[in-house]
Amino acid sequence: MNRPRRFLPSISLLSAFEAVLRTGSTAAAARELDLTQGAVSRLIQNLEVQLGRPLFDRHRRKLIPTEAARAYGRDITRALDTIQRASMELSANPEGGTLSLAILPAFGTRWLAPRLGGFLAAHPGVTINLATRLKRFSFEAEGFDAAIHFGVDDWRDAGHMKLFEERLTACATPGFLEGKAIKSIGDMRTLQLLQLETRPTAWEAWFEAQGVAPCPVQGMLFDQFATMTQAAIAGLGVALLPEYLAEPEIAEGRLVSLFTPAVSSVGAYWLVWPKARANYLPLEAFRAWLAAETSAMP
């Protein structure tokens, strides 16, 4: 691809522009870049000449960025972050590839992390960087190679691979249930039913799977499974947990399940990736490994 030199300013010009835009002054940018204030001013002027338009309005020796410069700056910041990340990854792992993966906190710590050793042993040249994300994001803006997503296969401009459907178990501590006559599903209506922000219809689906009409849900609201699980263990109510979270707690006696365990949830776990990265070798290896791991699940 032919890239006209005019539209490829040097890193020194872009770094000076981004620093002035972020810090608000040439003096602050100069201190950050270890340059003189005059040098930073000249770099900004050279960038404006190269682009053929002003980026700042000059008022009493102050630089006020134009609206166009602010928009341009957002893109330049993302580009500089991408270059820095790529350089760091190359330095850390010059012989292999790096996979930057966004994960859901509970899925990442309780399902994925215990299995990752197998992948890394099979692919010693690949480094995996993990970061948690609770909500959908822009791959272009964030720079991730892939993400673990809960819901349906509707991530825009992305490839999808289904991992497994979520199945939920209602759990509480033996102490919480002691003295409560919970003999039928209807008796659940009097209990505190803990809720998760990202699963607003989970209890409704659970009641329907038990063959009864849903009831109004009363209970604390959480943004993560980890805190909801701890609340249930503390005896604050009944938690609706995925199998991979419920099973260890039940096996160790901290929680017990109520009625039919592991009913189908309202979504599934997916690996998603930007289409432009579909053939990235570390991602291809990770996809193949995940497919083997999930197909071996009972």
Rank of each mutant, 00 (worst) to 15 (best):
Arg6Thr: 08
Phe17Glu: 12
Ala19Tyr: 03
Ala19Leu: 00
Val20Ile: 01
Leu21Asp: 03
Ala27Arg: 15
Asp34Pro: 07
Ser41Tyr: 03
Ser41Gly: 09
Leu43Gln: 15
Gln45Asp: 15
Asn46Ile: 02
Gly52Leu: 00
Pro54Met: 00
Leu63Pro: 06
Leu63Ser: 07
Pro65Met: 05
Glu67Ile: 14
Ala69Asp: 10
Ala69Met: 00
Ala69Val: 03
Ala71Ser: 11
Tyr72Cys: 06
Gly73Gln: 03
Asp75Gln: 13
Leu80His: 06
Met88Lys: 14
Glu89Cys: 06
Leu90Asn: 08
Asn93Leu: 05
Pro94Asn: 05
Glu95Arg: 15
Gly97Cys: 11
Leu99Gln: 01
Leu101Trp: 05
Leu101Glu: 07
Gly108Lys: 02
Thr109Gly: 10
Ala122Asp: 14
Asn129Phe: 04
Leu130Asn: 00
Arg133Met: 12
Phe139Cys: 08
Ala141Arg: 15
Gly143Arg: 07
Ile148Trp: 08
His149Val: 03
Asp153Arg: 15
Ala158Gly: 11
Met161Arg: 11
Glu165Asn: 14
Arg167Ile: 08
Gly179Pro: 05
Asp187Val: 08
Met188Ala: 08
Leu193Met: 11
Leu193Arg: 03
Gln195His: 04
Trp203Pro: 01
Ala205Gln: 10
Trp206Val: 02
Ala209Tyr: 04
Ala213Val: 12
Pro214Thr: 10
Val217Glu: 04
Met220Gln: 13
Gln224His: 15
Phe225His: 14
Thr227Asp: 13
Ala232Ile: 03
Ala232Glu: 06
Gly235Asn: 05
Ala239Arg: 08
Ala239His: 03
Ala239Val: 05
Glu247Val: 13
Pro248Arg: 04
Arg254Val: 09
Leu255Gln: 05
Val256Ile: 13
Val256Gly: 03
Ala262Thr: 09
Ser264Val: 14
Ser264Ala: 14
Ser265His: 10
Tyr269Asp: 12
Trp273Met: 05
Pro274Arg: 11
Ala276Thr: 14
Asn279Ser: 13
Tyr280Phe: 11
Ala291Leu: 05
Thr294Gly: 09
Met297Cys: 05
